[in-house]
Design a protein around this nucleic acid. Structure first.
Lengths: 469, 469
DNA sequence: ATGGATTTGTCCGTATGTATG
DNA sequence: TCATACATACGGACAAATCCA
């Protein structure tokens, strides 16, 4: 080892031992110090370069830990064989993300009204939860989610959705995206799933990601066409009975009865996604399918994305006993993916009645917005007609003009309106007259009529109900 | 319709229209009102039972919405066909969960010291994040996690782990459990994965849950036996180079070089799980494998479970460009599973230097605990010998007594000590002398010597290094 | 066959008690 | 405390369907 090249800088901010370590490492990598070479003894080296023995010791220890040298006790340190590191320039460029257009009016569904969120109350509960006394919450909690939250969810479900279950049947997770794959994993016997067509696009994608076979089942004005389950030899089915997405239809009672009987007969399961049942504006809420089931065939699934905020990432599912047992066997060593601080904050929020209050307030808000929107579209009837206006956060516009859906969408886009066509939700392409989803949740009461007017004018729809071209 | 039976209670807390709805519904379900039967007109019924037209109207509207009746405009309401609901008593009992034993001393690894968590600072950042001005945070953010957090992680990784990456290469998620399956999904070409044996049990389970084929690769004192990757025809490999779990070995430099060359040659990927690299108590931190790689072959994976708290559920991975492009294609329409409030709180926590401070404090704490533990075990040498004491939150005890691992574990359990045996981490069963993991993070400095003494006495190990039986 | 009376669902304005802020 | 808004309930106006002289 050419110790003459070892010029250490005592004034440098990098410690001496590290400088020494780096020097020797470089020499080894360079092959200046070859395999089997003996390093100078601590004493010799420390004398020679005028540093303490400890400095050398630390440097050698680091080289030893990282595997550059080996130590033969009472003999010395020896350089270990090195491998040449090959480099092949393979510059894979990162493809830039598509530029996000900015729109003047965004009426996509899935958005919510964020202006009324009770930050003050949420902060208060957070503050109460994130304290020294709750330091247990730093450790891992139950796989299914913490009991306090599951209890709150159970009583909420019972009172507002007629779902009767014990807290131990509830699994808390980061939304449908995380829960549905887990659930599919439990439904091992089901080879072919039925899903609604049109339906929520993510559902389809989750089935594909899990490599599970699915068949699109049509939806009509009474909801899912249940008879198809028999003809298509479906093993298990995914439905949104209370408010079908995106059509907004309610699964009729006779369909429900047939569906439940079908599940009983085939001893299989119905996945009920109750994603936005909180918001119904006329009459009592539509009962959940789970509440009509006496045979433990329904898995109830929902989230807080619409009722609180999409970014909270808290959802839950209610498993029938048989599936629960299977879940516990299979996921025993897993962890609930929702932060415990969030879980307890939400539990407090619900226990205090804040959740109920917030739901009532939001129902009011959305009802008013819905009224504004329907009133704003009224003058354009019958060129434009509205359906699905009794629940949810969007309505369906049926447009009677001599343009294709695609053309209308482009016209809207170039007028700064982001709007989703009904066609896009179909798995099997359909030829229908143009329909669009108009999500009214995110826009303010003042903006909504302007957005409607802009949409109508860009489509050349005039009041009185005739198109000008 | 036998309207005589319609006795409504005006004083009841359930509104009149709901009572009426329930009555009629019952009659339909009972088959008292059969399919096709015409309901009395609004006026007639309201006259007869002496309620307003609106009351009847509301009741009919609800029945209509739920699909019990249909409306023929200007003609009347007619009962729709009903299906009999079959019930088959299938009482699947919920299996009770195994009672959790309570232990006086819990020295499982995976626990952390919770006494020093800076609740005050965390609360402050939370309070700053959860405000009306940040109401955008209620809506969904980027799939990969919010940019502010990814930027903080990128600079942290660069300074503390030598990992060089841009924020856009980072994917934030709810820990390894959620990220690894996503990653496996991207590594479609890899048919056979190599994983460390012994290793983290969850890794194995995640591969099994994803139905991916894996081969256990042995670990020796230099870490993963890289040569086996060739002989076992491995396509991609999962490693913990900086501090192998559970053995605590460091992947030696020559092994790293060979590993990187192997990946380059086969154009495949190395998954580097850097799960607890923050805690190293002698010398500089062990460099990350990613920092040595110049060929975009390493996926860096880590979490905040050890450094902050396990219940936070925030982890991240750094994808090489090619995989990032694939990820963006495939997960475009998905959502980051970490709540945005948490993401921004953590980002603030890091930006303020609080994270760095906390890490330094915890390193000091754990180092002191480690010293206490090694000192406490010292008198029992050589019956008990310690390895892996330069990093991490646990050490390895090698026990030289004439008892089996199983016996020793039972002895510990009946003395109120929860301890994990090394054997349990092996995929391929091994016959070795008894080894145990002693996690020292959760116990206090005062309790640690007591726990050690209790463990030694229950195993009949006496000071001076001989076993009494 | 026909026209007017009747019945029907639909739509709307309003009163009252209660919950909300 | 008080004003507001909403659920519930009431009764009537309207137009379409039906019925019958």
């Amino acid at each position: 080892m050419d110790m003459l090249t070892l010029a250490l800088e005592p004034e440098s901010s990098t410690p001496l031992y590290e400088q020494l370590y780096l020097h020797i490492r470089q020499a080894i990598v360079d092959d200046t110090l070859t395999t089997g070479a003996k390093l100078p003894s601590k004493r010799k080296l420390s004398d020679f370069i005028d540093v303490s023995q400890t400095t050398v010791e630390l440097a050698y220890a680091q080289l030893l830990a990282e595997g550059y040298i080996e130590s033969v006790p009472r003999k010395g340190f020896y350089v270990l064989p090195q491998e040449e590191l090959y480099v092949r320039r393979s510059d894979n460029p990162i493809k830039p993300l598509p530029q996000k257009k900015t729109y003047t009016f965004d009426v996509y569904p899935s958005q919510i009204d964020t202006t009324a969120f009770p930050f003050e109350r949420w902060r208060r509960h957070l503050k109460q939860v994130v304290t020294e006394e709750n330091r247990d919450l730093l450790a891992l909690g139950s796989v299914q989610g913490d009991l306090v939250l599951r209890q709150e969810i159970a009583t909420y479900l019972y009172h507002s959705r007629g779902v009767s279950c014990s807290p131990e049947q509830i699994i808390v997770g980061s939304g449908t995206e995380q829960l549905l794959p887990q659930l599919l994993d439990l439904l091992t016997d089901a080879k072919t799933f039925g899903i609604e067509d049109p339906g929520y696009p993510l559902t389809k994608q989750l089935f594909e990601h899990q490599n599970r076979h699915y068949v699109p089942i049509p939806v009509d004005e009474s909801g899912l066409v249940v008879d198809r389950l028999e003809t298509e030899r479906i093993d298990a089915v995914y439905v949104t009975p209370a408010h079908q997405f995106p059509t907004g239809t309610i699964l009729s009672v006779s369909r429900r009865q047939r569906l439940l009987n079908w599940a009983l007969e085939h001893q299989t399961y119905i996945i009920e996604d109750d994603y936005d049942s909180e918001f119904r504006y006329s009459g009592k809420p539509i009962p959940s399918l789970q509440s009509m089931d006496q045979n433990e065939r329904v898995i109830y699934l929902s989230t807080f994305s619409k009722s609180l905020m999409p970014s909270l990432r808290i959802g839950y599912m209610v498993l029938p006993p048989q599936l629960l047992n299977r879940y516990r066997e299979r996921y025993r060593h897993f962890t609930c993916s929702v932060p415990r601080f969030e879980q307890h904050t939400l539990a407090e929020f619900m226990a205090n009645g804040d959740f109920e209050k917030h739901l009532n307030r939001m129902r009011k808000t959305y009802r008013r917005k819905l009224e504004i929107v329907t009133a704003a579209f009224k003058p354009y009837e019958p060129t434009v007609s509205i359906t699905g206006a009794s629940a949810g956060l969007h309505i369906i516009l049926s447009i009677n003009v001599p343009h294709s859906t695609e053309t209308l969408q482009h016209m809207a886009e170039s007028s700064g309106i982001r709007i989703k066509a009904m066609e896009d939700y179909y798995i099997r392409p359909q030829h229908l007259h143009p329909q669009f989803l108009f999500g009214f949740a995110a826009l303010s009461e003042a903006v909504l009529p302007i957005a409607v007017a802009r949409l109508m004018s860009c489509w050349n729809v005039t009041k009185g109900g005739t198109s000008t071209d």
